[in-house]
């Protein structure tokens, strides 16, 4: 073969150049089997050798909902929009914990997988995506628990609980939560490769964010001043909207949802670009 070297077809060229817009999402698709296997590993590993097995997907939600019910409704007497407090908190906690676990699960992608990343190449995004999918499944399981209680309270008939057509927006809510959590998570994980300070912040940062979001209180009880600040929290309308969809009352405006969507797109894009830039050389600094 007398091929001229300049005309040779290389299937891949590795250079130090870091392009901002080379996202290689197609490659992620090629590795979809790997993502599925990571999800599987997640589930198998958390339930193996436990007595309660899959019940562990419910226990944290139920326990924290019970505590919220006792503390915030029983002791602090925070109103819950005339809805059963337990169901109110369960509803908020279910959607919130989906967001929180997406965020904190992906926030340490680089540091906690450094030993695998240091030995073999695969699209690094496979890990955060698999975490999102795991959490989506876990959310589905927790939703079933919620629906059981939901049905129970409706059957009881003591409260006026009406589901409404906003249920159709449910997929949008989930997508926003997933991509917002993922976006923030990969931004943090990209920055923690150099600055570990952030990873210390994530744990209580998520906690603080929960209090800034109407999870354990309806935003309607806030003073107008706080309601104004709440408009800048892109998660607030999702939690409110989610509750509104099932319970039939709450504070939800479409303009707020649009704000959330735009914020999510911006944050996720920044996260993706940052992640792509860091993943090439993070092994040198992690």
């Amino acid at each position: 073969m007398s091929q001229n070297s300049s005309q040779e077809q290389w299937s891949e060229v590795i250079t130090p150049k870091k392009s901002w817009f080379d996202l290689k999402l197609g490659e992620l698709w090629q590795y979809r089997d790997l993502i599925i296997l990571f999800v599987r590993r997640d589930f198998v590993a958390t339930t193996k050798q436990t007595v309660l097995g899959p019940l562990w997907h419910f226990i944290p939600v139920v326990v924290s909902t019970l505590i919220f019910t006792i503390v915030f409704s029983g002791v602090a007497k925070i109103p819950t929009n005339n809805q059963p407090p337990f169901l109110f908190y369960l509803c908020g906690t279910t959607i919130w914990s989906f967001f929180a676990s997406c965020l904190s699960g992906t926030a340490n992608t680089f540091t906690s997988n450094a030993n695998i990343f240091g030995k073999v190449y695969f699209p690094r995004l496979a890990i955060p995506f698999s975490i999102i999918i795991s959490n989506l499944i876990r959310f589905g399981i927790q939703m079933m628990l919620f629906l059981v209680f939901y049905a129970f309270y409706i059957y009881q008939g003591k409260y006026s609980i009406v589901a409404n057509k906003m249920l159709l927006l449910l997929p949008v809510f989930l997508l926003i939560m997933a991509f917002l959590g993922l976006g923030l998570g990969i931004i943090i994980s990209s920055l923690t490769t150099k600055y570990r300070d952030l990873s210390n912040f994530v744990g209580f940062g998520v906690q603080l964010l929960m209090y800034a979001t109407p999870v354990i209180y309806p935003s309607s009880i806030l003073s107008p001043q706080f309601q104004f600040y709440m408009k800048f929290n892109p998660i607030a309308p999702i939690v409110e909207g989610f509750r509104h969809a099932f319970m039939g009352n709450g504070n939800f405006q479409l303009s707020q949802l649009l704000f959330s969507i735009v914020t999510t797109i911006v944050i996720f894009t920044i996260g993706l670009l940052l992640f792509r830039r860091v993943e090439k050389t993070f092994m040198d600094t992690v």
Partner: peptide, 17 residues
């Protein structure tokens, strides 16, 4: 590590088929 794309080069290139 550079050949297996675990980390990137500082200069230069690697071409593969």
């Amino acid at each position: 590590k550079i050949l297996s794309k675990v980390t990137g080069p500082t200069r230069g290139s690697i071409k593969t088929k």
